[in-house]
Design a protein around this nucleic acid. Structure first.
Lengths: 199, 199
DNA sequence: CCTACCGATCGGTAGG
DNA sequence: CCTACCGATCGGTAGG
């Protein structure tokens, strides 16, 4: 009986969230209206408010979901003991896998988080920092163990995440798997594009 | 006499464009209204339309300006004959210099161009492609001359531009010069972060 | 989940 | 460059 109630309530809410991710990802949070969202979902605009208290509540849930999924996916691997270069490569594969499997929500997560208000904004930034620090820790350990030469951790992290988060931005359809893309980016960042040839 | 007329007309229009870059960069194009812009400039909203025909006209001019400045800045260097690795490094310095000297407009250029409508959108994309191809050509030449090892040009360009265009995103104030940042990114992309140590 | 509706704000225009 | 104003649309609420 409780199940029956949830069965009616949950899919609609999840559907709203999914379509909102699509709408906000394609048009942007500000430009995508609740009426447009309602039309996509197939209900009236007012009915959206039976599932979410506000437009921002939808955005914050999308961002929180993505933050949780990124963290949940990376944590087992972050705790593993392995060579830092191999660990970094695997973490990049996982990160890009999460991005590719949530392309719309990930776009919102990367682009639209700035429309969050407090306290959502601080929560978001904190989760993002925690995630970033997990990668930072691997880089630091790799440096102290002699695997990595890192001049500036902040810039290295910036290059790492920029490369990963915008890898699927331009192309409409991904011709490559997340793993392929991850490995190609990993190769560039780990070995560089210079050959050994010296002139 | 003609000068006197221009002297009154031009600064106000340039001021609107500058403040619009700031507004659209900070709040986003959709969320930044013409009334907010008017207030920042210090005139009434209706008066903005004496200088620009529409909100989108302001956005398109900001984007066109940036596209022109990027192209104009890089072209002399792109035509020079020099070692491709050194050429790439210098081009990265120039690119980041343009970004840093136009932080707001560059933010709009990177984030808000998608709100352009035709024909502005196609013009924008074409200019961006031309600029991208200039870097692509240097990479290709470097590869064919044995300086670079490039598995996938599209991904390499994506890593290159993502790294550069989001380098100043997180930090409020830039503690580093454009040249310093460019050189650090260049080092990562050219030599990688791996040491030569083999296990 | 819908109908009916709210005040606020939007981009933009007329006319001076 | 301003006052005065337009229709459209916004996020959201009341009440059932």
């Amino acid at each position: 009986m409780k199940n029956a109630l949830l069965k009616n309530a949950k899919p609609r809410k999840a559907q709203i969230k999914e379509k909102a991710g699509q709408l906000f990802g394609e048009r942007g949070y500000s430009a995508g209206s609740m009426r447009q969202l309602a039309r996509i979902v197939g209900i009236e605009a007012a009915s959206l408010y039976n599932h979410y208290a506000s437009k921002e509540a939808i955005l914050s849930e999308i961002c929180e979901d993505m933050a949780a999924q990124f963290l949940r996916s990376i944590e087992p691997l972050a705790a593993a003991e392995m060579r830092p270069d191999l660990q970094l490569q695997k973490m990049m594969r996982i990160h890009l896998d999460v991005v590719l499997q949530n392309r719309y929500a990930a776009t919102v997560f990367f682009h639209e988080w700035r429309y969050l208000e407090e306290p959502y904004l601080s929560n978001f930034k904190e989760a993002r920092k925690r995630y970033r620090d997990i990668f930072g820790k691997v880089l630091s350990r790799g440096a102290s163990e002699g695997y990595f030469a890192i001049d500036d951790l902040r810039i290295t992290l910036s290059v790492l995440f920029s490369s990963m988060n915008w890898a699927f931005e331009q192309s409409g359809d991904p011709e490559m798997s997340a793993e392929e893309v991850a490995d190609r980016i990993y190769k560039i960042i780990s070995r560089g594009i210079l050959t050994d040839r010296k002139i």
